[in-house]
């Protein structure tokens, strides 16, 4: 699913040739990072620690520090850090999107600010007055 980049403006060149928006030959499973609460925990403990330091609430500083330490160590013990999106789902979404591209009417740049603009432009032509 990842594109091959062979030059600057590769996508534009493809579109000029009318070869943009191709489907790949084969779809593969892809791995994405799994959700994690660590950010939220650090946000809360960071705030608590800073607040405790500002007002000299030492118990809060110590408690928040300990929770932070435990959370970071615990994160090290997590092994399920990714989730997989199956090839079929990738294919379904990608093809649905290609279908959208096919169904969408390309627009001229003068229509950019109208409701006819659904995100598909007519490629620019060298020297043309558009």
């Amino acid at each position: 699913m990842l594109p091959e980049i062979y030059s600057i403006d590769a996508f534009m060149t493809e579109k000029d040739r009318g070869q943009g928006w191709q489907a790949p030959d084969r779809y593969e499973d892809i791995e994405m990072p799994a959700n994690s609460a660590l950010g939220v925990v650090i946000a809360i403990t960071g705030l608590a620690m800073a607040f405790g330091l500002v007002w000299y609430m030492w118990w809060l500083v110590i408690a928040a520090g300990l929770v932070t330490l435990v959370a970071i160590i615990a994160r090290g013990f997590v092994r399920q850090t990714t989730r997989t999106i199956s090839a079929s789902e990738v294919q379904r979404t990608h093809e649905h999107w290609l279908e959208q591209v096919r169904r969408t009417t390309p627009i001229n740049r003068s229509q950019e600010q109208t409701t006819a603009n659904h995100g598909l432009p007519v490629p620019p032509i060298e020297g043309a007055v558009q």
């Binding site: 740049r109 043309a128 558009q130």
Partner: peptide, 11 residues
């Protein structure tokens, strides 16, 4: 400007 008549050389 867009719709002007000056030469256009996108590349």
């Amino acid at each position: 400007r867009y719709r002007g008549h000056a030469v256009y050389r996108p590349k």
